[in-house]
Amino acid sequence: MALELYKEKWSGEVEIVNIGDKKRVCVGGQTTLPFLFEEGGFPCRPVIALEVWDIPPLDWSDNLVTALGDAIKDPLRWAKEAENLSIDLLCLRLYGIHPEGLNRSTEEVINIVKDISEEVSLPLIIIGCGDDSKDSLVLHEVSEAMKGKQLLIGEVTQSNYKTLAVSCLADGHNIIAQSPLDINIAKQLNILISEMGLPLNRIVINPTTGGLGYGLEYTYSIMERARLAALSGDRMLGCPFICFVGRESWRAKEAKAKFSEYADWGDEYKRGVIWEAATSCGLLQAGADILVMRHPEAIKIVKEYIEDLTKEE
């Protein structure tokens, strides 16, 4: 008995955002929901970025620190070693500029970014430290110094998008628009940024990531709603998603608790790895385009998973 299939005829699609100059990565472009190849097109597969800090992270779990080794003491080395992992991009987080921390100067940071950009061929994502005024000062300069490199820079919110949007427009970069698990704010922010002249194909949405067991389902449903709206023709929500899964999953107690304290939860190393991989997997099924990850083994597993789902038949 031949079954008459139910195929959606979507009127919208996701924008394609290009990141990088030497080695270029494209994200987005879907014309249907995640991995429904029978129904629509997927010009770009989901990609993975390794999260690298400009200063050695102090509070990362032993599991992560051991896996990454001494490289985390030097951003350039960390970034270079990343090329051995099967990743698509580098995500450099500039915690060193934080006024309450190292308070690194703009010049110092620009040197770090330039060194990495020269020595490593992967496309770059640059993220500030979270302090609004310092970020807008430094990111503006980084943007200018890296003119034409088609970085992905962030993050901006409704209250501070203007300066960075202007820089990205002038210097040919892409921007990360962050909204607090709120589809209306996500849309509003995209409208505001595109009104400044930065086209939608240069905006990536950070819907705010929840780790597995710590709000993943909120991110999941916000992404599904936004993607359904985009496919139904709402262009202002038709931007790819970036999810900071490394940061969120490694905050989870389940990812970092010691075996000695939680023997019932099983192997400590594998538990951490699966927490990051499972968070990634869940969000991929809701439409994630860029995963920013931390653990080399979790990256390897998720990469295999993506390849398995997207390989040509």
Binding site: E254, W265, G266
Partner: peptide, 12 residues
Amino acid sequence: TEPWQMLALLTF
């Protein structure tokens, strides 16, 4: 049947 496997799956 590993606990770390099931903890992740059941949490999901």
